Amino acid sequence: MSKRIDKQLEEKISQFCVVTGASQRDAKKYIEKYKSVEPALNAFYNDMSSRSTPAPSTSKLSQLFDQYKDLDGDEITAEGTLKFCEDLAVNPEDVVLLAVAYDLKSPQMGEWSRKGWVDGWKAIGIPTMKTALLRLRDKLGSDPVYFQKVYNYTFEFSRPPGQRSLGMDMAKPFWSLLLPHGLQGGVLSHIPSTRDVDGDDRMGGVEEGWQDKYMQWWFDFLDEKRLKGISKDVWQMFLEFVRTIDSKFEKYDAEAAWPSTIDDFVDYAKKRLASGQ
């Protein structure tokens, strides 16, 4: 029995070390105190936040940049980005990389400048990048202001140079990454309407909001409309729409300044609801 307990403790310590980059000694201290990995990680991060930890040095960050940059240039492009993801064991399509793109001011998808790389990681200020990614992922799901900044930046850095809109082949995958993460983390929690369908003040009560299935409805609608791209206005306003729309699409204010594309989607969604789809 004791051997099994020792084995479980070793596994927890190992997991803690991999995630945080902490020493075995520190990992053991946190695991023994908090018993399981998740509360131990939370305590570790809280302790890190309360301490004055030195930011990564400019020289070390620049040397790391050199490991991934192109041989014939001074920027990291797709090949270097894939190597960086491989070294950190993160999927290149992980939503956290959109947060990294925002913080490091990526000029285009999968590209990084030396200045953005160095200044961005220094501003993040967490010594190990694996730990930084974990913290950024959590922040992206729990901080509404940060989520909106990353969401809006995603449109800007992924839009082809010279184009005013974002192609549908790019917009859909990014929505599929960002919105589920925001809904799960709570930053897109429903903001209930305070007025009923007749415009009168409504008494308190539970009001359901955006449903998971509506993401596919939105994509189906865009396909039927045969839109080739999404404008900046639609991209930004869609986030507010997801936050505020009720599950029956009854409290949508058609007189408000919504883009016509969203107006048309509400009509489309109401018809699908009425047909029982």
Rank of each mutant, 00 (worst) to 15 (best):
S50E: 11
L9C: 15
G80Y: 04
W117F: 15
C85L: 05
D74E: 09
K33Q: 15
A55N: 07
P107N: 03
T20E: 02
S59N: 05
E75D: 08
E32I: 06
A101M: 10
K60C: 03
Y68T: 05
F65H: 00
F44T: 03
S113W: 02
E79W: 10
R25S: 07
S49V: 12
T20G: 01
P39S: 06
R114M: 07
Y30E: 00
N42L: 15
S113K: 14
T58K: 06
A78Q: 09
L104V: 13
A27H: 02
D72K: 13
P54E: 07
E38I: 12
S36D: 14
V118A: 00
Q108I: 03
A40S: 15
N42K: 15
V118T: 01
S106Q: 03
D26A: 11
V37T: 15
V90P: 04
V100L: 15
D74V: 10
F84A: 09
E10L: 14
A22P: 05
L88V: 04
P107D: 03
D119E: 13
V118H: 00
A55L: 06
T53N: 11
Q63C: 05
D47K: 13
A89R: 14
I31Y: 00
E86C: 10
K105S: 11
V96Y: 04
L98K: 03
A89T: 10
Q108M: 11
P107H: 02
P92D: 11
G73T: 07
Y45P: 00
L64E: 14
K60V: 04
K115T: 13
S50Y: 04
T20A: 03
R114Y: 04
P39V: 06
V96M: 07
E79G: 09
D72R: 15
A40D: 01
P107M: 02
K69T: 02
K33H: 14
P39T: 05
K69V: 02
E79H: 09
G120W: 07
D119I: 03
Y34R: 10
T77Y: 06
V90C: 12
G73V: 05
K35V: 10
S62W: 05
L9W: 11
W112Q: 14
D87P: 01
K28N: 12
L104M: 12
R25D: 10
P92H: 08
E86H: 12
Y30G: 00
E93L: 13
Q24A: 11
E11S: 12
V100P: 07
S23K: 05
I13N: 01
Q63G: 06
T53D: 08
Q15H: 13
